[in-house]
Every structure is written in C-alpha cells, then in structure tokens.
Simulated scan of single mutants.
Amino acid sequence: MVRVLIPGAMLGVVRYVVDVKKSDERLLGYFDKTVKEIGSRYEMSEIAEIPHIRETREAYKALGKSPSQYRNAAEAMLRRIVKGNGLYKINNVVEINNLISIRTGYSVGSYDKHALKGEIELRPAPAGERYEGIGKSNLNIENLPVLFDEEGAFGNPTSDSKRAMIQEGKREVMSVIYAFHLEQEELEKWLAEYRKLLEQFTDATAIQTEIIMTSK
C-alpha cells in the first residue's frame, strides 16, 4: 500500500515483473532520438518553467527545500541534455524511467519491491534525515518529499537511495511518477504511455497502474 501525506501531491504507480538487462538497440535508438529532439526543443532558461518541473520546484519551496540546490531529477536530466552532455545508459527499466521523465517534466523513480518492507508513504523527511543516494553519498533529504517504508527513507524526486535501486535480473519493480498537481487525467495519460513503453521494449508482465491521491 502507498499513501500520500503531502497536500497537492499524488503518485502515479506502475507495478510489474520484468527481466532487467542492458537496453537493446531498439530501445537505445528510441532513447537517443528522444534525447536529441528534446535537446533542440529547450533553452536552459526555459527548463525551470516546464509545468511539471515548476510544480515540483514549488513543492520543494513549500516544504522548505531549495529547488536550485536540490534540483529534481527531471530538471537535472534536462539541463544535462540541453548542455549537450546526454544521459547515462543503465538498463532497460532505468532508460524507460528516464524517458518518461524527460518527456513530461515529472520526476520518476523505480524501485526493487523485494528491497522494500511494509506500508509505503510519501511524506516530508524530518530534520537531519540522510541516506546513501545513487551516485550521491550521504544525501541530505531533510524537507524533501520522500518515500518511506518500514525500514526508512528510500526515494525522492531528486535522488533515490541505493537500497532499492534497480539491478539486473528478474525483478518485481514499482515505478513512481511524482506529481504535484491534482490533474488526474494528465497522470493517467502518462501511466498509459509508461505501460506502452514497457510492453514495447521489455518483457514486463503483470503490469498494474494506479493513482494515489493526496490524503484528505
């Protein structure tokens, strides 16, 4: 179960079973084409005003976190692309995760469900909270909107923890789209696109999608 405890937020959740492996030529071709198209679409000054990036930045400010010092993942990736630095290629699940993110401006995280325990909820991290991020050691996550399970924090729109990172092999995955608006139709559209990409480029089975609305 996933709960949302931040006003103005909702989560698009995709659950599936998949063989995580290096991306094949079809996926890499689509990935590179998308990166190239996006790199020619924006100027650096426009990135922070992309609607879903702007909404995430405003959520960070409301929680007391600097959106410029702790850029959300969608913004950080788009800045790399516009600078001409491209994106790292990791595996088929991460590539699809990042494709959705750069196309929409939503930050997206993908997590190995077997690394998670008990109920999951999105809430602001308390003062002093830190974790080992992927490529970012001892990350200060205080005041970020963070996913917690029974063992503690494991994901947020800026950088996920190493604990639930996606590694190669047969995995049960939970991918989460972090949304800071209440336009359910928009999120439904991108959940459908997420499913489409999984079906097109991976062997994913048992795909389920769900929108978790803000707690009242």
Rank of each mutant, 00 (worst) to 15 (best):
S137H: 15
L144I: 05
L139T: 14
E142V: 05
P145T: 09
N140C: 03
G133Q: 12
L147K: 02
Y131F: 13
G118K: 07
E121V: 02
L147F: 01
Y131N: 11
L116Y: 03
N138A: 10
L116R: 07
S137A: 11
A125C: 06
L147M: 04
P145F: 03
L144E: 11
E142M: 00
G118W: 02
P145L: 05
E121M: 06
K136C: 10
V146A: 00
E132K: 11
I120P: 00
P126V: 10
N143I: 00
V146G: 04
S137Y: 11
G135V: 12
E132G: 06
L116S: 01
L147R: 05
A125G: 08
E142L: 00
E121D: 08
P124V: 09
R130G: 02
L144M: 11
A125N: 14
G133F: 07
G118V: 08
E119D: 14
S137D: 10
L147H: 05
Y131A: 08
P126L: 06
I120H: 08
G128L: 00
K136N: 15
V146I: 04
R130I: 14
L147D: 05
V146Y: 00
L139G: 03
K136Q: 13
A127L: 09
G133E: 15
E121L: 05
E132R: 12
P145A: 08
G133V: 08
L144N: 07
R130K: 10
I141M: 02
R123T: 13
I134H: 12
L122G: 01
E121P: 04
L116I: 10
G128H: 12
I134C: 09
E119R: 13
I120N: 08
N140H: 05
E132F: 01
A125M: 05
L139Y: 14
E129S: 02
V146L: 01
G135P: 01
E132N: 14
L147I: 07
A125S: 11
E129M: 03
I141F: 02
L144Y: 04
R130L: 03
E119Q: 07
I134M: 06
G118I: 13
N143F: 00
E121S: 07
I134Y: 13
E129T: 12
